[in-house]
């Protein structure tokens, strides 16, 4: 492998280790690629970083200047030196984790970080001991940027900032797809699958199941089925069938096809 960098790649060093990555790669992603762990709560490989939680701060030296940057959004640059474990970095990381622990004391991921960075005792009185949400915004970005439905968003600002549905009331558009829960780092989003419906408890929204057009079994929230039909009209028929029937259907057609082949 050539050591030379091209226009589309850059070479940087992270804690003394050199690495060449594609231009546009963030420092966080570059570090993780060589096994250097930088904690990050508002980053997800699918969504990228938001620069919001601030636990991923690292020190960089660029153009002779040393400064703290947010690694989840800081682009890797040619000749960049990155330090992920300096005293300054650790102090700031501990400080942010202590603040998050006061905000969301029940969030497991925050508790674990606090333990790892040696700040298990809450430094500040939490306002709600049950709280889990750290306002990383991953649910908001998932719903708006990935699913493009926008059932939830940020509301209010500063201390009052919250994620939720408008008026914190039942949503008319939530698909109950559960993608937000998948990407939430703190386990704040609660979903309960009941007999007739999927309850998006955190979003105060119940969406009934769609029944399979073949076997009548519940398999996907009805709104999600409608959404998928619109998104992918060619597969409209496919999504009205439950996965089991779909598998059986596929198997059947295979069998038929092979019978036909044998006949020939």
């Amino acid at each position: 492998m050539s050591e030379e960098t091209t226009n589309s790649t850059v070479k940087l060093s992270i804690d003394g280790q050199e690495i060449t990555v594609e231009a546009g790669t963030t420092v966080l992603e570059a570090a993780r690629r060589i096994g250097i762990d930088i904690p990050a709560l508002c980053y997800h490989p699918v969504l990228g970083g938001a620069g919001a939680c601030r636990v991923c701060l690292v020190e960089v030296v660029a153009w002779g200047r040393r400064r703290m940057v947010t690694s989840c959004v800081y682009p890797a640059r040619e000749g960049l030196e990155v330090y992920t474990n300096t005293e300054k970095v650790l102090r700031s990381r501990r400080a942010v984790i202590a603040m998050l622990l006061a905000k969301a004391p029940a969030a497991k991921v925050v508790q674990e970080l606090a333990k790892k960075y040696g700040s298990t005792e809450p430094a500040y009185e939490p306002s709600d001991p049950e709280a889990r949400c750290i306002l990383c915004g991953q649910c908001v970005r998932t719903c708006n940027e990935l699913i493009k439905v926008g059932a939830v968003n940020f509301a209010h600002r500063g201390q009052e900032r919250k994620v939720g549905t408008p008026y914190n009331a039942t949503s008319d558009v939530c698909l109950a797809c559960g993608a937000c829960q998948n990407l939430c780092p703190t386990g704040n989003i609660r979903i309960r699958d009941k007999r007739d419906l999927r309850a998006m408890l955190t979003w105060h929204t119940d969406v009934p199941w769609n029944k399979c057009s073949k076997c009548g079994q519940s398999y996907l929230p009805a709104r999600l089925v409608e959404f998928l039909k619109q998104q992918c009209p060619v597969a409209a028929e496919l999504v009205t069938i439950c996965p089991r029937c779909r598998r059986e259907g596929t198997a059947e057609s295979f069998v038929q096809a092979s019978v036909l082949a044998d006949d020939e």
Binding site: A50, C53, R54, A102, I134, G137, F154, R157, G158
Partner: peptide, 11 residues
């Protein structure tokens, strides 16, 4: 504070 980042919001 807009409330986006932890230190400004909580700190």
């Amino acid at each position: 504070s807009c409330g986006k980042c932890t230190p400004c919001r909580e700190g």
